[in-house]
Design a protein around this nucleic acid. Structure first.
Lengths: 206, 206
DNA sequence: GTCTATAAGGAGATAGAC
DNA sequence: GTCTATCTCCTTATAGAC
């Protein structure tokens, strides 16, 4: 029936929003059901457990992120442009939902069992390996050619990811001061993206 | 009585450890009581609510952090040395307990009510303001003197804090690969501290 | 497929004996 | 001050009617 399909999708959609807003343990299945407009038992009918619901929501998204990871590496002539593209890519992804960055830190990195699951399923896969190996090779070439200072690929990637993620994690702090409008937010993010890009590009220059 | 004092302190000590290990909502008062070796009611006898217990533990620590924040600014002749000192200071602080960084992100930044409380109580205080104003002045002077590139103090501080915090947040990821011994951890932290320092110093150079 | 009802357990907090 | 017992509420998950 089409109606079933609708409810199942609505559960996924509503649960995703609530998980992002209030975290996994902060969201009850009762609350999800209420927001969906059905009863709590139906959540379990479709997804059996809350944990399975979690993965049904976020596993496809993670797959996408890993899949698209090496896309920015293909375009752009010189290395500095590619780094700029990567930062652009991460910002664009995290900008889609401002709760994504805190959520990643909270529910993925903070939870050992989840992290292990994620690592096994995504980071050991072929696509992720290829993307990183590609990046690593590129960095080594640039170092040897003397176009950037001696730096390890893993450190560079970690620096970039840290600066991007933390921009969005720290973002709510600024907006607690009263400037909550979306214009100020956009300006802040644009400003931070530039600041991060400059820091990284200058930071790896010879 | 001295015995009362002992139990009260032991509750504080044990609860701190458990909060850091498993987070606030992940730790029950029953669990704290069990670890202390008393019954659950006693927790509430001494601290009334779980939330008050939380602040009785972490408010003094936050006070300390804010108080000591401008200490690294006083010693060290040139600006680059001072920046190195600040990074050193943050690493040293976060190294005291590896759970501190995730905890800060989780329990403070992620929780709007907690963050508001923290901001009101500590960030608007005189000591914090003075420390940041001092730092801001210093950066402006360096920029005007042409010793560093044009950069805003708030961005610089944010970059530094982000890189330091994320080093410790990402740390468990590396150790899921099997290298869990404390030697590897120390080496990793030392390596990251150097990488962060180099990136920041080069990143603000002219 | 969707519901009501309920099981089974855990949480924080309180009352009152000692 | 420390205990046991208990209240109240909320959680996930399941059983079974329709």
């Amino acid at each position: 029936m089409e109606r079933n399909n609708n409810i199942e999708k609505r559960i996924l959609w509503v649960a995703e929003r609530l998980f992002l807003e209030k975290g996994f343990s902060g969201t009850s299945t009762t609350e999800i059901a209420k927001a969906v407009g059905c009863n709590q038992a139906l959540i379990h009918y479709y997804f059996r457990t809350k944990e399975k619901l979690f993965w049904d929501i976020f596993a496809p998204k993670m797959e996408q992120v890993v899949e698209y990871l090496d896309a920015p590496l293909d375009n752009g002539a010189d290395f500095f442009e590619r780094i700029t593209n990567i930062i652009d890519f991460y910002f664009g992804m995290l900008e889609l939902d401002e709760r994504l960055a805190p959520f990643i830190v909270n529910e993925l990195i903070m939870s050992p069992s989840r992290w292990e699951f994620f690592r096994e399923r995504f980071l050991r896969s072929e696509s992720r390996s290829r993307a990183f190996v590609k990046f690593e090779k590129m960095v080594e070439e640039e170092v040897e050619a003397g176009r950037i200072r001696n730096v390890q690929a893993i450190d560079l990637l970690l620096d970039i990811m840290s600066l991007c993620l933390s921009t969005f994690i720290v973002a709510p702090m600024g907006y607690a001061r009263g400037e909550c409008d979306s214009n100020a937010r956009k300006e802040y993010l644009q400003h931070r993206k530039e600041a991060v890009t400059i820091l990284v590009l200058k930071g790896i220059s010879v």
